[in-house]
């Protein structure tokens, strides 16, 4: 069960696994892959399990097999830091290269990966305009550009149903712009009620929470602040 939304007139499909699909253009969009995050922490002395990169790759491979897109856009912070691409183990490196080579691939640069090695394949750019949509890493402040699709914030939101609080990763948007959830396996999250996110929207906004079987829309007024434990 997927949810549709319209951003600047484009009909988009939100996948429960955290990706966005644009049927008209056969385009798959993911944000904040953070490849190599576990290894980056390990290099700094904190030995997180080394399985995140492979897990993120597997999920992405699954989605590509399911949607068979012509084009894939990664919305920046695809690598956790500048050494992450070089730190990939052999197998992950090979899988990533094969995936990039198999489709029209665009890397959008983010703050974690201000440069991407050309040898990896795929186009590298700061922004990408396709029809009514503009793809970039971080949403612009001030007057919103119509049709802006971005990542960066790792949005999460919390609703209360029958006295139970449910906190999940989510898409957040209004008719003009959409922010994608982080796709990477170890990525934490930021409450959409935090000013950093909520100020992006002039009026009301909407979130789509990721469940195990579907994506569930809620208006912003239905949200509750996420308490710190759930953010951890």
């Amino acid at each position: 069960m997927s949810q549709f939304c319209y951003i600047n007139g484009a009909e988009l499909v939100m996948d429960r696994r955290g990706a966005l699909y644009w049927p008209d253009r056969q385009m798959l969009v993911v944000a904040d892959l953070h490849f190599g995050k576990g290894a980056a922490f390990a290099a700094a002395g904190q030995l997180l399990p080394p399985y995140d990169t492979a897990a993120t790759l597997s999920l992405l491979e699954t989605l590509i097999a399911a949607y068979k897109p012509r084009q894939v856009v990664a919305l920046g912070d695809s690598f956790h830091d500048e050494e992450s691409a070089a730190r990939l183990d052999e197998e992950s490196d090979a899988r990533l290269r094969a995936m990039v080579a198999g489709v029209d691939w665009t890397w959008i640069l983010g703050n974690h990966d201000p440069a991407i090695e050309a040898g990896l394949g795929g186009a590298v750019t700061e922004e990408l305009v396709v029809g009514p949509l503009l793809f970039r890493h971080e949403a612009s402040l001030g007057s919103a550009q119509a049709g802006e699709i971005s990542g960066h914030f790792h949005p999460k939101a919390c609703v209360r149903v029958r006295q139970k609080r449910l906190t999940q990763r989510c898409f957040v948007g209004d008719p003009m712009r959409l922010v994608l959830p982080a796709f990477g396996a170890f990525t934490g999250g930021l409450d959409v009620l935090d000013e950093a996110i909520s100020r992006l929207f002039a009026n009301d906004f909407r979130v789509w929470l990721l469940g195990r079987q579907g994506v569930y829309p809620f208006p912003s007024r239905a949200l509750q602040p996420i308490a710190p434990y759930y953010a951890l």
Partner: peptide, 16 residues
């Protein structure tokens, strides 16, 4: 405030 938490213990648990 205004920054995502760096990673989640929950996700590490799931991955492990």
């Amino acid at each position: 405030s205004g920054k995502q938490v760096t990673f989640s213990a929950d996700l590490i648990y799931d991955v492990l």
